[in-house]
């Protein structure tokens, strides 16, 4: 087994490597070349700091992509194909990412692993990662919402400047996927500010993707966290009634109740992990 820089390969090969590693994965999530490129752009994944492994026959056997943001790095799209298993491929890719993160002088290396993927979780623990929190990936099929019950008095569209000012001021530390950098990488980012009759207020920022609403972030500025979240989401889904929706990496807290009331359900969970490097 040999670990090589991913920039020695084409994006098509990287996509094949990713899909090969996910062929029998716990949550099947294959990607097309276009989708993987979009993912890399959105989440600051740097192909120059990513790695592909090859087996003894020089066949691609695994992939690890590395996101890079100032003093932070992020492991994503890690997968090992059937031809690379039980040969230390995952360990080799991990070590390459750790070494590269030190070279980049990152102070933290982050990742998420699908909950119940115990072999991967063990690999990360052995490599010095600790669990920080459990995150929910939620979906919502397009169903009508009764907006009237929320006593919404005003819904205004947010411009990019307003969103850029609001996104860094959130209640909780966002996960890599929902960080301000990720959202501002999206050219067509949209946002809504919602005011309620009792003075409550909240906003949503989201991306109207080709097929679904994604990168949904809701923040409550005033009022009950769950109720205002539901009201903001009702305004959002009233605005886009026919769209499928994904809200990734939510915490199971009071706000999650607001998402659930708006029709979201728990599709699967990720465990966020971090390795301090300094």
């Amino acid at each position: 087994m040999e670990v090589l820089p991913a920039n020695q390969f084409t994006f098509e090969q990287a996509t094949d490597a990713y899909n090969m590693g996910r062929v029998d994965y716990l949550v099947p999530m294959p990607m097309s070349v276009a989708r993987l490129r979009e993912y890399a752009d959105k989440y600051d994944v740097d192909i120059n700091h990513s790695f592909i492994s090859v087996d003894g026959e020089q066949q691609i056997s695994g992939l690890l992509m590395l996101g890079v943001r100032e003093k932070r790095t992020w492991i994503t799209r890690l997968g090992v194909g059937p031809n690379g298993r039980k040969q230390g491929t995952g360990k080799g890719l991990m070590q390459a990412a750790i070494d590269r993160s030190y070279e980049l002088e990152a102070d933290k290396l982050w990742l998420e692993v699908i909950k119940d993927n115990d072999p991967a979780h063990r690999l990360f623990m052995r490599n010095g990662f600790t669990q920080t929190r459990e995150l929910i990936v939620a979906r919502r099929a397009p169903t009508p919402m009764d907006v009237a019950v929320h006593n919404i008095t005003n819904v205004s569209l947010l411009n990019r400047t307003q969103m850029a000012e609001m996104l860094p001021n959130r209640r909780l530390r966002p996960n890599w996927l929902n960080e301000t950098e990720s959202l501002l990488n999206i050219a067509g980012l949209s946002g809504l500010m919602v005011d309620l009759e009792d003075g409550s207020r909240g906003w949503a920022v989201y991306h109207v993707g080709l097929y679904k609403l994604e990168n949904i972030v809701v923040e409550v500025l005033k009022g009950d966290l769950a109720e205002v979240t539901t009201a903001v989401l009702s305004a959002l889904h009233n605005h886009h009634p026919m769209r499928d929706s994904v809200a990734a990496n939510l915490l199971e807290d009071e706000q999650w109740a607001g998402f659930q009331k708006a029709g979201y359900f728990d599709a699967f969970r990720r465990i966020e992990m971090v390795k301090p490097l300094s």
Partner: peptide, 15 residues
């Protein structure tokens, strides 16, 4: 329909 497809999720396709 396979739910996990490379370009569009099976869930979205059924819609």
């Amino acid at each position: 329909v396979d739910m996990g497809l490379p370009d569009i999720d099976g869930q979205t396709i059924v819609l």
